[in-house]
Deep mutational scan, measured.
Amino acid sequence: MATKAVCVLKGDGPVQGIINFEQKESNGPVKVWGSIKGLTEGLHGFHVHEFGDNTAGCTSAGPHFNPLSRKHGGPKDEERHVGDLGNVTADKDGVADVSIEDSVISLSGDHCIIGRTLVVHEKADDLGKGGNEESTKTGNAGSRLACGVIGIAQ
């Protein structure tokens, strides 16, 4: 089992970053940390998408990683996509320092995120509470600013 993974985020604009993942036990939580720069100040949706395909930019990554066919939600919700990591918060300089621990994603097994795409979005994720159909699919997080395929790390 891989215990570490990394993702280099890039987009068409100024947004870029490096996100690290570490899972010490196969059924334990995954620590997610790193930094994203070039964002507007505020909240930005942060999700693992189904495919590791960036051939047409971030759009070819498909929908959120959702092997259990659930509705979109927040990272602490029972009803959520596996890939729903909530929001990252950018400061006035456009930098989001990421520090998350998640017990639904994994670096092995059915919820493995390796080979899938991590995406940072234009807007805040409403965590499935926006009151419309799009909220239950995407959290109304808007366009995909930057993305990268999650790969095994040393």
Results as ranks from 00 to 15, higher is better:
A2T: 09
A2L: 11
A2G: 14
A2Q: 12
K4L: 08
K4I: 11
A5K: 00
V6M: 07
V8I: 14
V8C: 14
K10I: 14
K10Q: 10
G11R: 10
G11Y: 13
D12A: 11
D12R: 12
D12I: 11
D12L: 07
D12S: 13
D12P: 14
G13F: 09
P14G: 08
V15I: 11
V15A: 08
G17W: 04
I18W: 08
I18L: 06
E22P: 01
E22C: 09
Q23T: 06
Q23K: 15
Q23W: 08
E25D: 05
E25N: 10
S26Q: 15
N27D: 15
N27K: 15
G28L: 01
G28D: 09
G28M: 03
G28T: 15
V30W: 05
V32N: 01
V32A: 09
G34K: 03
G34L: 03
S35M: 10
I36W: 03
K37Q: 10
K37R: 14
L39T: 11
T40N: 12
E41P: 07
E41G: 13
G42I: 04
G42R: 08
L43N: 07
H44E: 01
G45P: 03
F46S: 08
F46M: 11
F46D: 01
H47E: 03
H47K: 01
H47I: 01
V48F: 14
D53F: 00
D53M: 00
N54S: 14
N54D: 04
T55Q: 06
A56Q: 10
C58K: 02
T59S: 10
T59V: 08
P63L: 06
P63G: 12
F65D: 01
F65Y: 14
N66F: 04
P67M: 05
P67G: 05
S69P: 13
R70E: 15
K71P: 05
H72L: 02
H72G: 01
G73I: 01
G74R: 07
G74S: 09
G74A: 06
P75V: 09
K76E: 12
D77W: 11
E78A: 09
R80E: 00
V82N: 15
D84R: 02
L85C: 13
L85I: 14
L85S: 01
N87I: 03
N87P: 00
T89A: 08
D91C: 06
D91W: 10
K92H: 09
K92S: 13
G94C: 12
V95A: 08
D97M: 13
S99N: 12
E101C: 07
E101G: 11
S106H: 08
S106K: 08
G109A: 07
G109M: 07
D110V: 12
D110T: 08
D110L: 06
C112Y: 11
I113F: 06
I113E: 02
I114P: 04
I114T: 10
G115R: 01
G115W: 03
R116G: 00
T117R: 01
T117F: 01
L118N: 03
V119E: 01
H121S: 01
E122H: 07
E122Q: 11
A124C: 12
A124E: 10
D125H: 01
D126E: 03
K129V: 09
K129R: 11
G130P: 08
G130S: 09
G130I: 09
G131T: 15
G131M: 14
N132I: 15
E133K: 12
E134R: 04
E134H: 15
E134Y: 04
S135W: 02
S135D: 03
T136H: 10
K137G: 14
G139Q: 03
G139R: 01
G139K: 03
A141T: 04
A141I: 01
S143W: 07
R144T: 02
G148R: 00
V149E: 04
